[in-house]
Amino acid sequence: MTDTRDSALLSINGLKVHYPTDEGVVKALDGVSLDILPGQTLGVVGESGCGKSTIGRAILQILDKPGRVVDGEMMWNARESGGQTLDIAIQNPDGHEMRAMRGGDVAMVFQEPMTSFSPIHTIGNQMSEAILLHQDKTPAEAREWSIELMNMVGIPNAPQRFHEYSYQLSGGLRQRAMIAMAISCSPKLLIADEPTTALDVTTQAQILDLLRKLQEEQKMAIMLITHNLGVIAEMADAVVVMYLGKAVESGPVDDIFHRPKHPYSQGLLRSIPSVQAVGHEKLPSIAGSIPHPFNRPSGCTFGPRCPSFMPGACDASVPRYMTLDGTRQKVSCFLHHPPEEVEEVPSDD
């Protein structure tokens, strides 16, 4: 565990993001830990509202108001490039370090290619903007580099597209332009927040291929946030499964898909329709629904929906998130490490 932390590009530990509202505090992230290794793809999966998008925004410190990081650390390892290790969690969101990081070392691709470009500025204007902010280039050089990037991501007629507006491009082309903009400053980490959700299936496959190709060329790490397990299986090296603002299981993609340990991961995987499935058979689903944010169950938050719920254990304390002996998986479930092992339960709030 310590060695992955040392070699990680970004190591997140016990990250908590809270949204204070009039009704109470929404704990969007409630102690998430994960490591992103250089050049690898980490898939982050979970249902809507589990906080997976919040992680991406927390890394860039662009949380929607009134959300803020209240606890935990995000260690950015800049040693490779000759810098110091930087704890993103304690940086001023408007400070120089964070602005240099946004779009520079860490870039982001969003779910909605339609609305992620300003409708009244040209694609080229917005691409050049990112380049001029982070690189020592003249506007003419930025334009040249933008057109080269657009060629690289497979946008035809790049010099002409440079002067067009986002509504003149198809959804797939827009997402390609978004990716071109994201890689314009050679980021070490690309956060892709549901990059293919708004696209049709053929375009999805093309965009995923493009991301993989660029990752090989640029040697960047990708944090792929999605609810689509198929996309994860195709793209990711490692997976983190999230539930209600916490990581419940993580490990190499093959281990998670073939030997899931947490009942929630097992349920997610069972709920994928299979080509070999017998017709007219009901697709298994996870019982119940996500608890209300102000009414979280005590103990293990998945308890009330869990088929292996153990009264007296699961509702009494929170299982620790730890590596299973003999595997490369981490899991937080009393099925795998009995409650006796957990003596000092960190209080849930």
Partner: peptide, 8 residues
């Protein structure tokens, strides 16, 4: 948000 994410 996208503009903020590229460091403007």
């Amino acid at each position: 948000v996208a503009a903020r994410a590229r460091g403007v």
